[in-house]
Design a protein around this nucleic acid. Structure first.
Length: 909
RNA sequence: GCCCGGAUGGUGGAAUGGUAGACACGAAGGACUUAAAAUCCUUUGGCCAUAGCGGCUGUGGGGGUUCAAGUCCCCCUCCGGGUACCA
C-alpha cells in the first residue's frame, strides 16, 4: 500500500478538532491518546514476556515492589517505575528479551490494624488496595507483563516462602567448605553422640540456620509486637509507630545470618552498586579483626575471655569490664559488693527501657570487688560491671585500656582508675605528646610502644609501631595458649517472628513433649485460619492463638501439638519475590530451574535507598543459602542496583508548628499565607507524609497533564539519584514539549518527502547518540533536554522528513510511550512501536567541518573563531594569532599558545 | 562523634581539568486577539557601560596545584542520609 493512502486513512480517524482551534491544526489530546493505547496494550498483551531461549540477550529489570497502602500511589512511586520502564522499552527496541514484572508486598501491619478497628479482614483491604495500585500503575503506561503479577499474601506464593523457611531450618553452615549444607550432612562430634539423643538434637538445633530460642528482644507495647533490632530507632522508638519499645525475653524464631557475614561482605566487591551503598552494607556487617584473650581471675577458677581489636595494648590494660548480663558476674562478685552489683544490674535493665541515648552519654559502673590478672604485667586489675559493654558483641567482656581507648579513658577518669600510657604517640605537638604520655589525654592512633615488655615472659613490643605490635602480641598470645586471633561481626542473628495475624504462618508444630517439627513440603501451604477478632493477646501473643480449631493438632500416636502462633515478618515475602517472577504460576516447584538459569541474575534493580541495608542484605542472605543448596544458579541476585532519590514536597507550618495542607496556602511576594487570612506560614521541604499533609497523588497530575507528561516531568526533574523537591510549577515544560512534538508531527503538512535539511540531520544523529548513551547511564534528564533541543531545531525549520520523524518518535517513545505509539501510527505504521529497532547514530552526520573554537587569553575566554576540524596545531596557532582580536590582548609580547585540538586555544601572555 | 553524599542564576538543573549557567520553569517586553487563554518572537547571573563594541565579577568560604579549576589537593562552614559506647 502506498504511504500516501495510509496517511489519509489514519488522518481520517483522528481526534475531533476543537472549534476554537485553527481550522486544520491538530492538537495534543493526551487523555484520548493515553486511554486508547492503554487499551491496545492490554488487549494485545504487548508486553507479555516469552521465555524465548533462542534470544540469548535477556534483560531482567526489576522495581522494588510496593506495599499497597490504603493511600494509593504518591508521586514518588512513578519515579523509579518510570526509570525502569524507559530502560525496559529501550532494551526491547534493542532486541533484548525483557523481563519486567510487578507485584505486591502485601502482608503488613496497616491492613491488620484496620482489621482490628473495623473487623474487615486484612485480605479484603489488601485486595482493594492492590486494585487501586494496579489501576494507577496501568494509567502510567508502565510496560509490565501483568500475567506475571504476584502477591505475597497469595497462598500460591507464600507456600514457597514457607518452603524456603523449611530449607533454612534444615541447613547448617559448613565453615570448612564455606557454604550451607543440608543438615543431614552435619558431622556430629563423638562426645555429643555419646551423650544421647537429646544432646544430639540440641547440637543439631544449634547449627540450623533457623532456630527457636529464648531471645532478649525489643517489644513494642503499642503495636503489641516484637521488633527486630533494626526496626528500633536510635532513640528507642519503634520505626513503624514511633512509640517506645521495651526489652523482653520471649521465645522467637531467629535466623543465623552472621554465618554468612563473610560471604555477604566479600560478595559486595563484584557487584555494580554505588560505593556508598556497599559501604553501608559493610558497616552494617561490621567486620573487625582482633583477638580473644583469657584473663585469670584472682581467687577464682573462672577465666574471663575478652575480645579486643587492640591486643597490642595489653600492657596498658588497667581494669576489666563485664557487661551487666555477663554470666560470670554473679559468680565472681565479692560478697561485700554483691548488693551494689545487683542493684546496678537491675537498674541497667530498666535503663535500657528508658532512654538508651541520653543516659548513654554518662558512663556508669560498679566494682565487683574482684581482681583479674593482667597476663603480661602480672598485675592485679579490678573487674567492673558497666553497661557500656554490650553482651551481644564479642564476648560481653573487655579489657580496658584507658590510655588508648576513649570510652575506657572516660570511665577511668570518672572512677579514678589507673591510666597507663604504653604508646608514645605519633603527634607533632610536644605539649600534647607530654599530656598523652602522662595519661592525661587519650590516644588511639599510631605510635611507638613504651613500657611494653616483660623479659620474664620473653615478650616485648617496645620500639614497634601498632601494626607490628598487633602481629607480635597475637603470635605470643597464641603461643602461650591464652588467646587466639579472631574475626568479629556486628551483624546479629535476625529475629524472624512477629506476633501478628497478617503474615506467613510458620509451618511449625510445637509438641507437648517440647519437640518441634516442621510440616512436610507436601503439606504446604499452611494457610491462615479465618478469624473474627484480630486483636493480639495481652502478653504479646499473636491473634492466631485464638484460632483454636486451627491451633491444635494431634499426631497418629495421639501426641498433642500446637501450631506456631507467630507469623513471619514482612521481609520474608520480599526476600525472594524476584525469583517467583520468573515462573509465577508454577504449582509443582518454586520455579523451573531452566527458566531460572535463563533469567537470573536481575540485571538492574531500582528502588529507594531506605532499603539499602535491610531488604538488600536479607535478600542476599536467602539467595546465598538457595545457591548453596543448588536451588538458584547465581551467588548474588542483583548485579546492578541503583537507588533513586527521594521526591520531597513543600509543606507548610504555622508558627505553633501545626501543618497546613498546601491547597490552603496562598503565595504573596515570596511569603506564604493561609488562604483568606493574614496568618503567615513557613514553607519547608520534607519527605511526603500524611502527617505533613504534603502527599501529592499522581491521579490529579495524570488528569490535568497526562501520564506521558508526568513521566517526562519526573525524569526531567534532575538526576535519578538526587533528592529533589516536587514543584509542579515546572511541569509545563515537559508538557509543552510533548504538545509541540505532537503539533509538529501529527500535522501532515509538516512532514515532507525527499532530502532532509543537513542541520536537522546533524542534530538528529547527535541526539540519537546522546539519548542512547544517557539511557544506558540512567541520565534521563539530559536525554530529555537533548530531545528538546532537536525539537526546537525542527520547529524552526518547520518541516522534517518522514524518516527523521520516525527516528525521533522512536527516541521519544520509551519516555512518552502513549504519544510515541500515537505518532508512530499517525506516520503510517500499523503495529506497536514497542519492538521497532532503536535508531543508530551515523558517524557521517556527527562530524562537522568547522569548529567554533573558543580562544582564551590567560585562561579567560575572549572570543571565538571558526577553525577547520583537525587543523594541525601550527596552523591553528597561525590562524588564531592572525586574528586582530588576539592582537588586542597580546600587544608586543611573544605569547605562549596552548592548543587543545578541537577544544580550546589558550594564549598565555 | 564516625562514615557517605551534597552546596552552581529568582527556581529545577547542565558542564570527559578546556566556552560556567545547556535544557526547562518563572519573570519582563512584544506579535496575534474586541479581550483573555493558547501560540509565537525577544530579553533574562550580578555590576558597570551602552548608539554600537565592550569591560569587570561570578559555581558555600579560605588557601594551593595547573597554561587552564564548578571539576584535582588541603582547611573551614552549612545541609541531607546512614550509624551510634561494636571494645
Amino acid at each position: 500500500m502506498p504511504r500516501e493512502v495510509i496517511f489519509t486513512k489514519v488522518f481520517l480517524i483522528s481526534q475531533p478538532i476543537s472549534a476554537k482551534r485553527k481550522a486544520n491544526m491538530k492538537e495534543y489530546n493526551f487523555s484520548g491518546i493515553e486511554k486508547k493505547w492503554q487499551e491496545y496494550w492490554e488487549t494485545n498483551k504487548t508486553f507479555k514476556t516469552e521465555d524465548d531461549f533462542s534470544n540469548p540477550n535477556k534483560y531482567y529489570i526489576l522495581d522494588m515492589f510496593p506495599y499497597p497502602s490504603g493511600a494509593g500511589l504518591h508521586v514518588g512511586h512513578p519515579e523509579g517505575y518510570t526509570a525502569t520502564d524507559i530502560i525496559a522499552r529501550y532494551k526491547r527496541m534493542k532486541g533484548f528479551n525483557v523481563l519486567h514484572p510487578m507485584g505486591w508486598d502485601a502482608f503488613g501491619l496497616p491492613a491488620e490494624q484496620y482489621a482490628i478497628q473495623t473487623g474487615t479482614h486484612p485480605a479484603v483491604t489488601t485486595n482493594k488496595n492492590c486494585d487501586t495500585f494496579r489501576r494507577q500503575i496501568k494509567e502510567l503506561g508502565l510496560s509490565y507483563d501483568w500475567d506475571r503479577e504476584i502477591n505475597t499474601t497469595d497462598p500460591g506464593y507464600f507456600r514457597w516462602t514457607q518452603w524456603i523457611f523449611i530449607k533454612l531450618y534444615s541447613t547448617w553452615y559448613d565453615h570448612k567448605s564455606d557454604r550451607g549444607r543440608d543438615i543431614s550432612e552435619l558431622p556430629i562430634p563423638l562426645d555429643v553422640l555419646k551423650a544421647g539423643d537429646e544432646a544430639r538434637r540440641k547440637y543439631i538445633d544449634s547449627k540450623r540456620l533457623a532456630y527457636y530460642d529464648d531471645a532478649q528482644i525489643w517489644y513494642c507495647p503499642s503495636c503489641r509486637i516484637v521488633c527486630a533490632n533494626e526496626e528500633v530507632l536510635t532513640d528507642g522508638s519503634h520505626e513503624k509507630c514511633g512509640n517506645r519499645v521495651v526489652r523482653r525475653n520471649l521465645k522467637q524464631w531467629m535466623l543465623r545470618i552472621p554465618q554468612y557475614a563473610e560471604r555477604l561482605l566479600t560478595g559486595l566487591d563484584k557487584l555494580d552498586w554505588s560505593e556508598g551503598l556497599k559501604e553501608m552494607q559493610r558497616n552494617w556487617i561490621g567486620r573487625s579483626t582482633g583477638a580473644e584473650v583469657d584473663f585469670k581471675v584472682d581467687g577464682h577458677k573462672e577465666i574471663i575471655t575478652v575480645y579486643t581489636t587492640r591486643p597490642d595494648t595489653l600492657f596498658g590494660a588497667t581494669y576489666m569490664v563485664l557487661s551487666p548480663e555477663h554470666p560470670l558476674v554473679g559468680t565472681i562478685t565479692s560478697p561485700e559488693q554483691a548488693k551494689q552489683v545487683e542493684e546496678y544490674i537491675s537498674a541497667a535493665s530498666v535503663k535500657s527501657d528508658l532512654d538508651r541515648t541520653d543516659l548513654a552519654k554518662d558512663k556508669t559502673g560498679v566494682f565487683t570487688g574482684t581482681y583479674a590478672i593482667n597476663p603480661v604485667t602480672g598485675k592485679r586489675i579490678p573487674v567492673w560491671v558497666a553497661d557500656y559493654v554490650l553482651m551481644g558483641y564479642g564476648t560481653g567482656a573487655i579489657m580496658a585500656v584507658p590510655a588508648h581507648d576513649e570510652r575506657d579513658f572516660e570511665f577511668a577518669q570518672k572512677f579514678g582508675i589507673d591510666i597507663v600510657c604504653i604508646l608514645s604517640p605519633a603527634v607533632a605537638d610536644p605539649e600534647q605528646k607530654k599530656r598523652i604520655i602522662a595519661g592525661r589525654e587519650c590516644w588511639s592512633g599510631d605510635g611507638i610502644y613504651i613500657n611494653s615488655s616483660n623479659s620474664e615472659l620473653k615478650i616485648t613490643l617496645d620500639g614497634l609501631n601498632v601494626e607490628e605490635g598487633i602481629a607480635t602480641i597475637t603470635r605470643w598470645i597464641e603461643s602461650k595458649n591464652i588467646g587466639i586471633h579472631r574475626v568479629n561481626y556486628k551483624l546479629r542473628d535476625w529475629l524472624f517472628s512477629r506476633q501478628r495475624y497478617w503474615g506467613e504462618p510458620f509451618p511449625v508444630i510445637h509438641w507437648e513433649d517440647g519437640r518441634i517439627t516442621l510440616l512436610d513440603e507436601k503439606e504446604l501451604p499452611l494457610t491462615l485460619p479465618e478469624l473474627e477478632v484480630f486483636e493480639p493477646g495481652d502478653n504479646g501473643e499473636s491473634p492466631l492463638s485464638n484460632a483454636t480449631d486451627w491451633l491444635w493438632v494431634t499426631d497418629s500416636e495421639g501426641r498433642r501439638g500446637k501450631r506456631e502462633t507467630n507469623t513471619m515478618p514482612q521481609w520474608a515475602g520480599s526476600c525472594w519475590y524476584y525469583l517467583r517472577f520468573i515462573d509465577p504460576k508454577n504449582e509443582s516447584e518454586i520455579f523451573n530451574k531452566v527458566l531460572e538459569k535463563y533469567w537470573m541474575p536481575v540485571d538492574l534493580y531500582i528502588g529507594g535507598a531506605e532499603h539499602a541495608v535491610l531488604h538488600l542484605l536479607y535478600a542476599r542472605f536467602w539467595h546465598k543459602v538457595l545457591f548453596d543448596l543448588g536451588i538458584v544458579s547465581t551467588d548474588e541476585p542483583f548485579m546492578k542496583l541503583f537507588n533513586q532519590g527521594m521526591i520531597l514536597a513543600f509543606a507548610y507550618q504555622t508558627e505553633t508548628g501545626a501543618r497546613v495542607s498546601s491547597d490552603q496556602i496562598t503565595e504573596k511576594d515570596g511569603r506564604f499565607y493561609i488562604t483568606g487570612t493574614d496568618e503567615e506560614v513557613r514553607q519547608i521541604v520534607a519527605k511526603m507524609s500524611k502527617s505533613l499533609k504534603n502527599v501529592v497523588n499522581p491521579d490529579d497530575v495524570v488528569k490535568n497533564y497526562g501520564a506521558d507528561t508526568l513521566r517526562l516531568f519526573e525524569m526531567f526533574l534532575g538526576p535519578l539519584e538526587a533528592t529533589k523537591p516536587w514543584d509542579e510549577k515546572g511541569i509545563r515544560g515537559p508538557h509543552n514539549f510533548l504538545a509541540r512534538a505532537y503539533r509538529l508531527i501529527a500535522n501532515r503538512e509538516n512532514i515532507t518527502e525527499g532530502e532532509e535539511d543537513p542541520e536537522i540531520l546533524r542534530v538528529l544523529h547527535k541526539i540519537i547518540k546522546k539519548v542512547t548513551e544517557d539511557i544506558e547511564g540512567l541520565r534521563f534528564n539530559t536525554a530529555i533536554s537533548a530531545m528538546m533541543i532537536f525539537l526546537n531545531t525542527a520547529l524552526k525549520k518547520e518541516k522534517i522528513t518522514l524518516n527523521t520523524a520516525g527516528n525521533f518518535i522512536k527516541l521519544l517513545s520509551p519516555f512518552a510511550p502513549h504519544l510515541g505509539e500515537e505518532l508512530w501510527q499517525l506516520t503510517g505504521h500499523h503495529d506497536t512501536i514497542t519492538y521497532e529497532p532503536w535508531p543508530v547514530a551515523e558517524e557521517q552526520y556527527l562530524n562537522e567541518e568547522l569548529f567554533e573554537c573558543p580562544v582564551s587569553v590567560n585562561g579567560k575566554m575572549r572570543f571565538k573563531i571558526d577553525i577547520p576540524v583537525n587543523l594541525p596545531k601550527e596552523e591553528v596557532i597561525k590562524t588564531v594569532l592572525a586574528d586582530e582580536r588576539a592582537q588586542k590582548w597580546i600587544g608586543t609580547a611573544t605569547p605562549k599558545v596552548i592548543v587543545v585540538p578541537n577544544r580550546i586555544v589558550n594564549i598565555v601572555v
